[in-house]
Amino acid sequence: MKRSKQINIAIMRKELIVRPLLKPVALAVASITLVACGNEEDVKVASSVDDCVSKTDLTQEQCEVAYQKALEEAARTAPRYNSLSACGIEFGQRYCHQSPDGFFVPYMSGFMVSNAFHHGYVYNPVFYYRNSRSSYHGRVMLSDGTVIGSAGRSSYKVPKSTLSSKPTPTRTVSRGGFGSVASAKSNWGGGKSKSWGG
């Protein structure tokens, strides 16, 4: 046979991908899980940029970047609730707010900083769990409900899987340094889009 024996047709379908960014039903904390023992990594949890500077080896600027990234990550991944009271039961009403997409989400209470440089910096947001009827009351958890330990500890042991390697955040000082030749040449061709391949 001179052709590909098998092509995974399902992954080639594109139409299904065109869907709203958010699932119609709010996610909430689906299931609370305790971290497993074993392949673990030491992390610090910083409650502020200053806290980050004092607790970790990162510089002021690196801590600021980590804080900003964690905020962005929280905006994207924080557990979502349909009502303020639903969010409040788990995280305390005072610590919940409405996100731009209309759901109610807890405020980030801090962010994880990993000492393991080979993983790159990690900026996962963490949330303080306040459901007084739960045995996990007073614990710190990640967006997906993974409990990493009691609040206020100087460091935590977490499985490496929660430190999924993130690219190193940096600050971009300029953009637009590529593309100018195509732009100059695109004036030719009467407004039709041009491929820059061949």
């Binding site: 971009t172 300029s174 590529f178």
Partner: peptide, 27 residues
């Protein structure tokens, strides 16, 4: 291509300020 950025050390970045370490460019 037009959105690629650069940080102070000369690394190229994407729109999320992540450093690009491997790139396929149709350009």
């Amino acid at each position: 291509m037009e959105d690629i950025g650069r940080d102070v050390s000369g690394s190229f970045t994407d729109l999320s300020d992540h450093i690009i370490t491997s790139m396929f460019k149709l350009y």
